[in-house]
């Protein structure tokens, strides 16, 4: 197990490193570039060159990357090139502030996705081929086809405008007012939760149908185990492994939803920081945010691999 952990951690580190090279290359080699963005399109080549020299961008790319990486390892991602109140803020601060919003939002969204998707998927499996099953798969197709901004819009329309139950604007930080923060992120979390419930429900249904037809469940039934016990002990457990996998694999999809709802509901999370950085051509921030998103994806999937062993003792990681 320790050996397995070591190799997986090493693989994750190499992958994150590769993404950081990609992010670095993206900012350096795409048309545009920091100096051009700062000076505007009418700047003469000589002016651009001067600013490049001042920013150290005229040195060999490998040297620049090594320097960036050296500082990034100490969590120093440079300072923001954005204007206004953000000018000169360390990128690491922007990211930390963003994560304080994004992490609770993503966790609540995932919790809602599992809380909605898992029971629906199991209910569909229990009545496979009948009305409930067909209703659940139709709902899943529609949910998967909903862009987050549209579902968010409809939820605002119903819960904020018509019913007036939940606020759609007015941000409060989690540190200042945890309960208020929870109220504010409820609609955005519901938006990504409902959309992400669809893959969870589909996966849970498929897995439960397979487990329910399997040998252990048939034996348990023959042995006279009550249906509730069969479902909780065997079917739910068998469905958990694929459900956890799909939650891990859907993290990228979830992040897309998080970026959209943060900007829609004006939540100052990582996705909002990223869009502001893109609008302001704030290269150091863009570069760092890509790496943070990728690192989150890689680490969640690493965690999923480790969870397997905990959920299903029969699964032993290779080499462990």
């Amino acid at each position: 197990m320790l050996r397995f952990l070591f190799w997986r951690l090493l693989g994750a580190a190499v992958l994150i490193l590769a993404v950081s090279v990609l992010a670095f290359a993206l900012v350096r080699f795409l048309p545009g570039g920091p100096a051009q963005a700062a000076l505007g399109l009418r700047a003469s080549p000589a002016e651009v060159e001067r600013l490049n020299a001042a920013l150290g961008l005229d040195r060999p790319v490998a040297v620049q990357y090594a320097e960036w990486l050296g500082r990034a390892l100490r969590l120093d991602f440079g300072t923001s090139l954005s204007g206004g109140a953000r000018a000169g803020t360390p990128v690491a601060d922007l990211i930390a502030r963003g994560l304080a919003v994004t992490v609770p939002l993503a966790l609540l969204g995932t919790a809602i996705a599992v809380a909605v998707g898992l029971p629906l998927g199991l209910a569909a499996a229990a009545r496979a081929g009948r009305g409930t099953d067909r209703a659940v798969s139709a709902a899943a197709v529609v949910a998967l086809s909903l862009p987050p901004f549209y579902l968010g819009y409809l939820l605002i329309l119903v819960f904020a405008v018509r019913l007036g139950w939940l606020p759609s604007v007015g941000y409060v930080s989690p540190a200042a007012d945890p309960a208020g923060f929870l109220r504010i992120i409820l609609l955005p979390a519901l938006t990504i939760g409902i959309i992400n419930a669809a893959p969870v429900a589909r996966t849970a249904r498929a897995a439960a149908v397979e487990v329910a037809a399997g040998e252990p469940v048939r034996l348990a039934r023959l042995a006279g185990a009550p249906p509730g016990v069969v479902w909780f002990k065997h079917v739910l457990r068998g469905a958990m492994v694929p459900v956890v996998t799909v939650v891990g694999l859907q993290v990228g999809f979830l992040m897309g939803g998080v970026i959209v709802v943060e900007n829609m509901f004006a939540l100052p999370g990582l996705g909002r920081q990223m869009l502001i950085a893109a609008e302001q051509r704030d290269y150091p921030t863009l570069q760092a945010v890509i790496v943070v998103f990728a690192a989150a994806f890689v680490l969640v999937n690493l965690l999923v691999d480790l969870l397997y062993a905990a959920i299903d003792p029969r699964i032993r990681p290779e080499g462990g």
Partner: peptide
């Protein structure tokens, strides 16, 4: 390809469009 999977599509697109306009 694994590197491609690690960066969510929307994140890559926002970064690219942030650089190119």
């Amino acid at each position: 390809l694994e590197v491609g999977f690690a960066v969510p599509p929307l994140v890559l697109a926002i970064a690219v469009l942030g650089v190119t306009g």
